[in-house]
Computed example of a mutant assay.
Amino acid sequence: MQIVSKPAAERRRRQRGITVMAIVGLLIIVTFVISMNTGFIRLAPSDVIETFFGMGTEKQSLILFEFRLPRIVISILIGAGLAVTGCVLQGISRNALADPGILGINAGAGLMVLLFVSYFPLTAAAPLFLLPVLALTGSGLTAALIYVLTYKRHYGISPTRLLMTGIAIGAGIHAATIVLTLKLNPDKYQFVANWMAGSIWGANWKFVLALLPWIAVLLPYIFFKARILNVLSLGDQLASGLGAAVEKERLKLLASSVGLAGACVAVSGSIGFVGLIGPHLARRLVGPQHQLLLPTAALTGSLLVIAADTIGRSILQPSEIPTGVVVAVIGAPYFLYLLVKSRL
């Protein structure tokens, strides 16, 4: 019987994780190229290459650089953001079903965005950059309410209580959102309906610039906290015994994940299940260690959203299926599967 030393096993795990991330990254690149060629007006691969190097027509440049590329970049960013958010929530709550959409955090962010678009136009540059801040406010208030109602002194956070509380609060926010939509004019109602279905509506470079700073700051910070997430996943008592400031670290990670989810929801609409599916697929591929799990979940989430957006733009042309609907078709059965297997 061959005995494998701990350093050797760790090295193998790391090498496998790097290999998995490389494969998923390659799939993202392939999907990226396919997505650039997908749409109501098709661009052949040769046209895309020529346009990239400035040799395309004015129409081809407009289609590629002003319509498709911003949408593709946003899909990649929000996929990574939502998947990492789900991974953090699952780690700090020790609940395999935790997800910003299921827990109502996305709904809180969406409610603030709805209030904003109900009274202000979305044409000026300044309001666009305020959207992530407003969404952060909504998601933060929702997360704080869930935390207060879930946390019990001497017992910490119960995974089952967290899930039930989040679902209840999310349902209440969705009800309030529906009531508000009834007072909108037809144009804004159509926008809100598409947003609630998970349509990537911020498909221009201004929205990319509004989202990018949040991703660039919060993702590296969460990756830096990977070891803390490993400790928190062991439970409050054991984490405290290992010297971790449990409540302080939990609040830091919760605030980071809420900011990430709010910024993504502000430009992507209500896309659910990415924070559930991404971490679970990553965990199956690289294991539970967050040093590998977090970046793999980010890549998996990006692949899921960009693939869903490409499918939604291609199967019912000239109409589009919202990205959130395509993700839900995949995510709902997977959620039920996890619910059956979980020990609630």
Rank of each mutant, 00 (worst) to 15 (best):
N95V: 15
L97S: 13
A98H: 04
A98S: 12
D99G: 14
G101Y: 14
G101W: 05
I102T: 06
I102P: 12
L103R: 02
I105A: 04
I105W: 05
A107T: 02
G108R: 05
G110C: 11
G110D: 06
M112E: 00
V113N: 00
V113M: 12
L114G: 03
L114V: 05
L115C: 07
F116K: 00
V117H: 07
P121K: 05
P121H: 05
L122M: 11
T123M: 01
A124S: 11
A124R: 00
A125G: 05
L130W: 03
L131I: 10
L131K: 04
P132T: 06
V133P: 00
V133F: 12
L134M: 15
T137R: 01
G138D: 04
G140H: 10
L149I: 13
L149E: 13
K152I: 09
R153D: 09
Y155L: 15
Y155Q: 15
S158P: 08
S158C: 09
P159T: 07
P159I: 14
T165Y: 01
A168Q: 05
I169W: 07
I169R: 11
I169F: 14
I173V: 15
I173M: 11
I173L: 15
A176D: 00
A176N: 01
A176H: 02
I178V: 14
V179A: 10
T181W: 03
L182N: 05
N185E: 13
Y189H: 02
Q190T: 08
F191Y: 09
F191H: 06
V192K: 00
A193C: 01
N194C: 08
M196E: 08
W201A: 09
W201D: 05
G202T: 01
A203C: 02
A203Y: 02
N204I: 06
